[in-house]
Design a protein around this nucleic acid. Sequence first.
DNA 1: ATCCTTATTGCGAACCATGTGCAATAGTTG
DNA 2: CAACTATTGCACATGGTTCGCAATAAGGAT
Lengths: 137, 137
Amino acid sequence: MHLEEVLAENELRVTRPRRLVWDILRSSNDHLTAQAIADAVHTQDASINVSSVYRALTLFSELGIARESKFGEDGSRWEPAHSDEMIHLVCEKCGTVDHHGGQVVTRLRDHLASDHGFVSSNVNVVVNGTCSNCSAQ
Amino acid sequence: MHLEEVLAENELRVTRPRRLVWDILRSSNDHLTAQAIADAVHTQDASINVSSVYRALTLFSELGIARESKFGEDGSRWEPAHSDEMIHLVCEKCGTVDHHGGQVVTRLRDHLASDHGFVSSNVNVVVNGTCSNCSAQ
DNA sequence: ATCCTTATTGCGAACCATGTGCAATAGTTG
DNA sequence: CAACTATTGCACATGGTTCGCAATAAGGAT
């Protein structure tokens, strides 16, 4: 997915802050806080303001190319968008956040819709626990 | 579950702020923000400070008798603790938050543990969407 | 019931993540 | 290149949540 296209399609401009924030989001496979992203941006261009980072992130989320999740302590975590099917496994020991795919979410959605008339737009699953690495020792 | 017992077991004191916060949590079947709880407390005793409300809530959550969830805009939501099996259905139209029980979570836990070595301590499922009431019209 | 000890409070200020108004800057289109 | 205006940087506002500390009150002992 190319930032340029998505922005162009919506008649939005491709600016340096937006490009940098996007590159960092894409290149990291972590779930970064806005602050962490701002820090990373600053190593490449110290003149870019935190506000622009926040503005870029909110924009990306509105455009559907970034996803905001709330876990952990210090504010929201950001990552490139992925399907709801991908749920989050947060290890309480090493702090790693992994994705896990399956049909759980789809099944849940279907069940809620057909049996309870609840039409879901967005499903968020966060599992806290101990990952296999950490529970090994 | 009696507040007094839980507190006594942990050599903690039963104070007016704690009792009021607990009563409000128990009597409401909503998911209240700390601020809303503070407001409710104030109608009964205006002299109680917000800090004490926050302190009570964090304490209750440590004691395992209250649960903090993060959805919506304005901060965390609080409710008396319930099993992970109860997932949250948040209606984007009317704002209602409903509980929904099932085996989804247990199945997910088992799957993650046996097939992926991820031992989950706590599972959080938030489904955003439109409830049957709202989608009716 | 009263005294003592110390957990807990109220207060105010601090903090942190996030949003905003506005003048200056820089994409984009012609 | 020029012009139009979306977007930025700045500095400040905001809203939720925490903290230090002196004053207060819970609960056990006398």
